[in-house]
Design a protein around this nucleic acid. Structure first.
Lengths: 249, 249
DNA sequence: TGCCATTTCAAACGGCCGTTTGAAATCTGT
DNA sequence: ACAGATTTCAAACGGCCGTTTGAAATGGCA
């Protein structure tokens, strides 16, 4: 992690390294760690097959550096307090948080693979997820928890705040995790910067409205308000199981 | 697809087929389609390596049948109108929708892999996703859209309703897609039936509160209410790029 | 029981994978 | 310009993959 001297940035070796990082981001984002092949990454980077092992050690080490690289870029480009006045109030900070979150996910400018890399890592974790949670996700969760706690009037580490913070981030992550489904359901849907602004507005307004309404009627606490009866334990019926054979026909 | 006669259910061949479906569900859910190996599935099913190709044709055909099998089971066990009175109002139907959704995701009883299979398919689609969207997701989306439209007072196919429906399902899907992260952030979190009830209550209450608040202040429509200034186009700064070499040391 | 279709089995095939190798090319400092 | 370290390169290695094969085992039916 610690680096004493900065590398010569325009060395041929440094260029190869950089090309491998960029190509690795593209390929890992497109097909995931396991499906990605070192051959394809090297091809896209214009490098030899042995380049990954020479410059990074092995495929997994390259993957870790790719994750760190694009993550750092994304958070440098869109920090947690993106475009926020110093003394901004909680609603404004919530809006900034949501907007920056969406921008990090949807930054498809040239080569920004952070969103897709993280989405894959969340659903199909590699050994790199633990570090990501500690270094990025947990601070972000605490940041959001402070905002939500201020809006709800609870403790940042309370279970209530956790539930409401989940409700906020989930609305952002949806567009990252379910993009293939959203595109199939609504092919006309686009994710231009203007559209992302509107999404951020919606999510912020939706959440703030829920916060306000809940803060108003805060007495039933978080106990279960039974709106529907139990599912009556319907047993999973036997399915017909079609008798198709696949061999020689 | 069409099956004329029902197969002999206790045939040795039918048992093998069934065992392959169950084992396939477990393995595909655990590691995804690409990472799953036919050898491991056959091992768990107690079948020979050639069994998959004999009974299903190839690995992908097995995967399609596994998806259909567990999907059918999940929706039979937890239908869209789970435990709902015939003339129930919109809030009750929303609650039932959310609860059934969560139950389908979290049904870890013995061998119910629907949730994990679908989550993987959404983030890393195979050719099977198109059929899933048409047969399952779209009807479900329309079902929810009708509920939301009734609550908001709009058209089920309006953009406003779509946004709000997304906000509801996203809160459910979050626990499916981000389970590895949630577990790492909050190791004490559990997903017992009682906890799922509480989750369903929270999501329903959160969403209904937002609906109510929005329906009350419905005049600014869905235009962008600028809560924060533009990000001032901060260019992605150059990152330090540590100069580590990996070979021979 | 004996025949034949169905199902299982162990073994192998071809292919793609990550990685290694040792030589060739290229840089770096003198 | 030259020696030595660094970087690139084509080729190959071993391993695991999905699938195929042909024979052996099994089951239903006369």
């Amino acid at each position: 992690m610690a680096v004493a001297l900065e590398p010569k940035l325009d060395t041929s070796a440094a260029q190869t390294r950089q090309a491998l990082l960029e190509a690795g981001g593209a390929v890992f984002a497109a097909v995931g760690f396991h499906n990605a092949t070192v051959r394809e990454i090297c091809r896209q980077a214009g490098a030899n097959i042995a380049a990954v092992n020479y410059h990074f050690g092995d495929k997994e080490a390259l993957y870790r550096e790719v994750l760190a690289y694009f993550q750092t870029r994304a958070y440098q480009k869109f920090p947690l307090d993106l475009g926020l006045a110093p003394g901004a109030d909680a609603p404004a900070r919530l809006r900034a948080f949501v907007h920056a979150f969406l921008l990090r996910i949807f930054d498809h400018s040239s080569d920004a693979w952070h969103g897709q890399l993280i989405a894959r890592e969340m659903v199909d974790p590699t050994s790199a997820l633990d570090a990501i949670v500690v270094e990025r996700i947990r601070p972000q969760a605490q940041h959001l928890a402070r905002i939500v706690a201020e809006l709800l009037g609870g403790q940042p580490d309370s279970e209530l705040v956790r539930l409401y913070a989940f409700s906020v981030v989930s609305q952002c992550l949806f567009y990252s995790h379910c993009q293939p489904v959203v595109i199939r359901l609504f092919p006309e849907q686009e994710f231009s910067p203007a559209e992302i602004e509107r999404l951020a507005d919606h999510i912020t307004r939706f959440s703030l409205a829920a916060f306000k309404e809940v803060a108003r009627t805060r007495r039933g606490q978080s106990a279960a308000k039974p709106l529907a009866p139990k599912p009556s334990a319907s047993s999973p019926r036997r399915q017909p199981a079609k008798p198709r054979r696949a061999r020689r026909d």
